[in-house]
Simulated assay, not measured.
Amino acid sequence: MTTDRPGLRERKKAATREALSWAALRLAVERGLENVRVEDIAAAAGVSPRTYNNYFSSKAEAIVFRHRDRVLQAAEALRARPAEEPLWEALTRALAAPFDGATEDPDPQWVAAVRLLLREPALQAELVRGSAATRAELAAAVAARTGTDADRDLYPKLVASAALSALQVANEHYLTADPVVPFLPVFTEALRQLTAGLPDPSAH
């Protein structure tokens, strides 16, 4: 009984963090980042402003959390993939898993609003601030799988950086495509091209 409580507590914390992050994103898309208060986010998530401050130090951090968390989930999923699975197949499945469900056609108005929101300097700075940590975590998972050293070897860092670049490019394509397109197919295609070694399309 006692051993189950920390797990339950951590799950509740994770659910609260996710709810706050989603509320921050939704409200910022609807109103604009500058028009959203911490009190608004907390109320939308059903918690107090004090609880909000226990999880996030800024609105930008709350919004960016969902992106970082997906990468961390992918790193954890990669560690759990079958050992006999080829690296890039395992990596593709692990990276796509947190986006499961992102195959439906998105709302064009939502996509346009998110595109504008991501131009906010505070969000851009927050994305840069956390990028090293998320890349390091993914590189560590790659290193564990390939028997390399995440600190000394180039390979796991290159793989993690390439995969996260594919995520960034897929996200940019998703936000600028006209007409709008689902995100996950774009992302998996970017990873497929990486897996193939980025063959020159003009050679076909």
Score class of each variant (00 low, 15 high):
residue 89 E to M: 15
residue 105 D to M: 11
residue 89 E to V: 15
residue 106 P to H: 09
residue 105 D to V: 06
residue 116 L to P: 02
residue 102 A to C: 13
residue 104 E to W: 06
residue 118 L to G: 04
residue 95 L to V: 15
residue 112 A to Y: 10
residue 92 T to E: 11
residue 107 D to P: 03
residue 98 P to T: 04
residue 93 R to I: 03
residue 101 G to N: 01
residue 105 D to L: 09
residue 112 A to E: 07
residue 94 A to H: 05
residue 111 V to C: 01
residue 99 F to G: 08
residue 103 T to M: 06
residue 104 E to V: 09
residue 88 W to M: 06
residue 117 L to V: 08
residue 104 E to Q: 12
residue 106 P to W: 02
residue 117 L to C: 05
residue 94 A to C: 04
residue 91 L to C: 10
residue 116 L to D: 02
residue 116 L to S: 13
residue 88 W to V: 01
residue 92 T to M: 11
residue 92 T to F: 07
residue 115 R to K: 01
residue 88 W to C: 03
residue 102 A to I: 07
residue 96 A to L: 11
residue 109 Q to G: 08
residue 92 T to P: 05
residue 101 G to Y: 08
residue 111 V to I: 11
residue 95 L to T: 12
residue 113 A to E: 04
residue 108 P to I: 01
residue 97 A to E: 06
residue 93 R to N: 12
residue 110 W to S: 14
residue 99 F to H: 14
residue 117 L to N: 02
residue 101 G to E: 02
residue 93 R to E: 14
residue 95 L to W: 08
residue 107 D to E: 08
residue 102 A to L: 15
residue 87 L to H: 09
residue 110 W to M: 14
residue 107 D to G: 03
residue 93 R to H: 15
residue 116 L to T: 06
residue 105 D to W: 05
residue 117 L to F: 10
residue 87 L to W: 02
residue 90 A to H: 07
residue 108 P to T: 09
residue 96 A to N: 09
residue 91 L to N: 03
residue 99 F to N: 13
residue 118 L to P: 01
residue 94 A to R: 08
residue 97 A to D: 03
residue 114 V to R: 13
residue 102 A to F: 15
residue 109 Q to M: 15
residue 98 P to Q: 10
residue 103 T to I: 04
residue 116 L to G: 13
residue 104 E to G: 10
residue 110 W to I: 14
residue 108 P to F: 06
residue 117 L to G: 10
residue 90 A to Y: 10
residue 91 L to M: 13
residue 109 Q to A: 15
residue 118 L to C: 00
residue 109 Q to F: 06
residue 96 A to G: 06
residue 99 F to K: 09
residue 108 P to A: 04
residue 97 A to L: 05
residue 105 D to G: 02
residue 94 A to V: 12
residue 90 A to F: 14
residue 110 W to R: 15
residue 89 E to D: 15
residue 111 V to N: 01
residue 96 A to D: 01
residue 91 L to K: 07
residue 109 Q to V: 15
residue 112 A to P: 09
residue 94 A to T: 04
residue 107 D to K: 09
residue 116 L to E: 09
residue 98 P to A: 07
residue 109 Q to P: 07
residue 118 L to Y: 12
residue 98 P to S: 06
residue 112 A to M: 03
residue 108 P to H: 03
residue 101 G to D: 00
residue 96 A to H: 07
residue 100 D to R: 13
residue 112 A to T: 06
residue 101 G to V: 00
residue 100 D to T: 13
residue 95 L to S: 11
residue 115 R to W: 03
residue 92 T to Y: 14
residue 104 E to F: 03
residue 102 A to H: 14
residue 113 A to N: 14
residue 97 A to N: 00
residue 110 W to E: 11
residue 111 V to L: 04
residue 87 L to G: 05
residue 107 D to W: 00
residue 93 R to L: 13
residue 102 A to Y: 15
residue 112 A to S: 05
residue 102 A to D: 12
residue 88 W to F: 13
residue 115 R to H: 14
residue 94 A to K: 03
residue 101 G to P: 00
residue 111 V to A: 04
residue 109 Q to C: 08
